[in-house]
Design a protein around this nucleic acid. Structure first.
Length: 837
RNA sequence: GCCCCUGUGGCGGAAUGGUAGACGCGAACGACUCAAAAUCGUUUGUCGCAAGACGUGCCCGUUCGAGUCGGGCCAGGGGCACCA
């Protein structure tokens, strides 16, 4: 091994080909080794791999390679979440076909991933836009339909009247279509829904068992599911009608001073029908913005309907308002308002001069003290008839019991979670496999006619859904009566595609979506890695699909992802030119001159902005391919793992990647010093090497890659400093193996030069000799009153009295004691002595 | 508004209640070189010549001992949001 430089330019590709030829990372479902399924969230083929992908997939790759080395049969697959709007946008803007655009991107990005040397089983690769995938999805959708988990109903969508298209919420900017700028209308369409609410309790309970998930994500899902328990009850109205309200605070029912209904509540609409002031008020409410900032400042507004509501206990008549802060989508769309104990009600009551009455008071406080703001806290019921003196919890139960006994209300659980609307009025998605027949209604496409494929000859020049406009695609015979009928032209939300792809990776028979037994062999995914932005929707939908498929007997697993890891973003400094017309500058447009940063062209000073997530708009991006070309895949991978803990943001820096490139070369030079002839043992180095093996293994298993990296640096430094010995050569071989999951190309090259047989990718993780993990000498900290005064190096296991004597004998200790009386000595064996004077 | 997370050198960050700052980046000095690059070595929390003192956002507490545990603040970041 004479070469002084490792040349990634030729070595990377050579080893990538070697792995491919050996099918080194093909997962064998029939293997009897313990199985490990390592999965990173599959990418949307947007064009090119960005550095965030590199970080994500490097982490998974290190874990997958480590698992292989520790004797596991590893499934580490990759594919493409290939349906979605960017492809349609490209079609409209560039006149290309979404399929062609997508395939091109997949080819580009696959090449990029391969150049990073990821240990992926490419034989299982698929794209969700392939009929071989979405056809099975259609079959699963029909199975769920047959089980009653799919239904259709009217639902509002954002409609862009210029583009003749439905917009996602994110595409509505300030009430206007993002592309056309037209005022967006609400339209009612018949749409498909999945009954996720049927699984609300299960999905909530399941969170409790997901120990391998971050608490933060579990909490976010819990809040999203939003279970609340309360009382739903009826107010009889003075107009002979009645209104149902829902409250989580039945204990405050005696404090109700008015009833409020949502602007789109049927009662409000009935009032508006012959009261144009009411109609105007409702229209005004609907105009109001729904952004956070607008809601923050929005005033509580109401319209007194003149109708009265009879309080079920006091018989008092309460006014009924239409109020802008009541939501039709939650509960019953109507509330009993208790100003004393709800701030919104308080604000409203203050504005409209309604009574504010305290009905809960903290024990021992004066129940007649006036309220200056709503008190949502705990206490005892006051001014509350038969529940006076009860705790909040008792009062709740008592009121619910009375309502149920008297028949005007009942305890009820309400969920924030809504059923999942999966209809999208778009081309580039999975066609929903149904046919609309004038005679037979909605008819499922028979399974032997699946997949329902997308037509290829489409027109994107005209606005609207091309499937609707296509001359022939939707016209089919009804499967039931044979008469003329039309296909459903909606396609499925792309989140459906990503809700079961991890099952298809594990098992891909041709004739069905997956094989139950093969799924059982691989699932649950042992470690799932991805961005926090998927904490709610994707992860909740995937959990729901898995449970729904279990419900209909297709899988046995309940939770798809045993452990979840959400990695941080890759960030970079931003640069802005100075002068009259400041603009963002790319890293390659600027250079450092001492402490200053200037524009390369012209030399004007550059303002250094905040360190933020890499984005094209701020130009603070680096291209993974450029970095691979300059430093090699291993240096890029090493950088992704170094320094920052993986859950935190990683600031990209030019000097950082250069340092990684230098370390690759430094290791290479060190590997070159391996000799199989030199003799002699170096016990200290043996110890250090074995400690490193244990620590790096633990760190990788815990995804603490930054710590594993630091250990490898430490061992490398120690080996460099050590004199030649058999121990040193063994430590060099150990280093090759420890580096193998992180810098696989360098490790393969070194492994071959060391004369080892086979691929290092297939090598076993080095065994740890437990005897070498313990030192025979330890350093003892000697403290006086908790402050460090001295350290002692002593034999391990030295008895406490000896330690105490040695500590007291120390000059530094005596000086610190300064003749004071020793009152107490605390001795922690092999660790520390603390002398208290 | 509610909920959650995070505050440690110039920077990224280590640290089962037990020697704070491992490891990396940066910086300074030195060696090699005609010179540079590369490489190697030394130093690098603050104050201080030193002995030493101080030091993990702030205050209080528990403890022989607190970055770590408890209480109260402050700052930054994130999630949810008129959810009754």
């Amino acid at each position: 091994m004479n070469d002084t430089r490792f040349d990634p330019g030729q070595a990377d590709g050579r080893w990538q080909r070697a792995w491919a030829e050996a099918r080194a990372f093909k997962a064998d479902s029939a293997s009897n080794k313990p199985k490990s399924y390592v999965l990173e969230m599959f990418p949307y083929p947007s064009g090119r791999i960005h550095i965030g992908h590199v970080r994500n997939y490097t982490m998974g790759d290190v874990l997958a390679r480590y698992k292989r080395m520790t004797g596991h049969e590893v499934l580490h697959p990759m594919g493409w979440d290939a349906f979605g709007m960017p492809a349609e946008n490209a079609a409209m803007e560039q006149g290309v076909h979404p399929a062609g655009w997508t395939c091109q991107n997949i080819a580009t990005m696959k090449g990029q991933l391969q150049r990073l040397g990821f240990a992926l089983d490419w034989s299982r690769e698929f794209a969700t836009c392939d009929p071989a995938y979405y056809g099975h999805e259609q079959a699963l959708f029909l199975d769920l339909y047959a089980a009653g988990l799919v239904y259709r109903r009217q639902s509002a969508v954002n409609w862009d009247p210029v583009d003749q298209t439905v917009l996602a919420n994110e595409q509505v900017v300030d009430g206007r279509g993002w592309r056309s700028g037209a005022l967006v209308e609400k339209r009612q369409l018949n749409q498909w829904f999945l009954k996720i609410t049927q699984f609300a309790q299960e999905l909530l309970d399941g969170l409790g068992e997901l120990d391998g998930w971050p608490d933060k994500v579990r909490l976010m899902q819990e809040n999203w599911i939003g279970k609340s328990q309360g009382l739903q009850f009826r107010f009889d109205l003075t107009n002979g009608d009645m209104v149902e309200v829902y409250t989580t605070r039945p204990d405050t029912i005696f404090g109700a001073s008015f009833v409020a209904v949502a602007p789109d509540h049927p009662l409000a609409e009935a009032v508006a029908a012959n009261n144009c002031e009411a109609a105007q008020f409702i229209a005004q409410c609907k105009r109001g913005g729904t952004t956070a900032a607008e809601l923050e400042t929005a005033e509580k507004l109401g319209f007194d309907t003149g109708i009265g509501a009879r309080h079920p206990f006091t018989g008092e008549t309460l006014p009924v308002f239409i109020a802008n802060f009541v939501l039709m989508e939650y509960g019953t769309g109507a509330i009993m308002a208790v100003p004393g104990h709800d701030q919104r009600d308080f604000d409203f009551a203050t504005k409209y001069g309604l009574p504010i009455c305290r009905v809960i008071a903290p024990a021992g406080s004066n129940p007649d003290e006036p309220l200056t703001e709503a008190e949502p806290g705990d206490g005892l019921a006051v001014h509350s008839g038969f529940i006076d003196g009860m705790t909040v919890a008792d009062a709740r139960r008592a009121v619910i019991a009375r309502a149920e006994a008297e028949g005007w209300g009942a305890g009820k659980t309400v969920w924030r979670l809504r059923d999942w609307g999966v209809s999208r009025q778009r081309y580039w998605g999975t066609p929903i496999p149904f046919i609309h027949c004038a005679a037979c209604g909605v008819v499922p496409v028979p399974k032997d006619q699946l997949p329902v494929t997308l037509p290829e000859d489409i027109d994107f020049a005209t606005p609207g859904n091309p499937l609707v406009r296509h001359p022939s695609w939707k016209h089919v015979a009804c499967p039931s009566c044979g008469g003329a009928a039309e296909r459903e032209t909606d396609t499925l939300d792309t989140f459906v595609n990503s809700s079961w792809y991890f099952l298809r990776f594990a098992s891909q028979p041709a004739d069905r979506a997956f094989d139950k037994a093969e799924i059982a062999a691989w699932l649950p995914v042992e470690q799932y890695i991805g961005g926090i932005e998927h904490a709610i929707l994707h992860l909740l939908y995937a959990r729901f699909w898995t449970r729904a498929l279990r419900h209909i007997g297709l899988v046995d697993v309940a939770e798809p992802f045993a452990s979840l890891f959400t990695q941080g973003m890759v960030t970079h400094e931003t640069y802005r030119s100075t002068g009259n017309d400041p603009r963002w500058l790319a890293p390659e447009e600027v250079e450092r001159r001492g402490a200053e940063v200037v524009e390369k062209a012209g030399g004007q000073p550059v303002e250094i902005g905040r360190v933020v997530k890499m984005s094209k708009s701020k130009k603070n991006v680096v291209d993974p391919d450029d970095m691979i070309a300059r430093y090699g895949a291993d240096a890029v991978r090493w950088f992704m793992l170094s320094d920052s803990p993986p859950e935190r943001d990683l600031p990209w820096s030019e000097s950082g990647i250069e340092g990684c490139g230098r370390f690759v070369q430094r290791l290479w030079r060190l590997f070159g010093q391996h000799s199989s002839t030199v003799q002699g043992t170096d016990q200290a180095l043996d110890r250090q090497a074995h400690k490193a093996i244990a620590a790096v293994g633990e760190d990788i298993a815990a995804l603490a890659f930054n710590k594993a990296v630091a250990r490898i640096y430490e061992l490398a430094s120690a080996v460099e400093k050590a004199a030649p010995s058999a121990s040193r050569s063994a430590a060099i071989r150990t280093l090759v193996l420890l580096a193998a999951p992180m810098m696989p190309h360098l490790a393969e090259e070194a492994w071959a030069k060391l004369g080892e047989a086979g691929l290092v990718a297939d090598a076993a993780w080095p065994a740890v000799d437990p005897a070498l993990l313990v030192d025979d000498e330890v350093t003892i900290a000697v403290q006086v009153k908790g402050k460090l005064r001295d350290t002692l190096t002593v034999a391990k296991g030295l008895p406490q009295p000896d330690l105490e004597a040695l500590a007291l004998a120390s000059d530094k200790v005596q000086r610190a004691l300064d003749g004071a009386q020793v009152r107490k000595v605390i001795v922690v064996p092999d660790r520390l002595v603390n002398i208290v004077a």
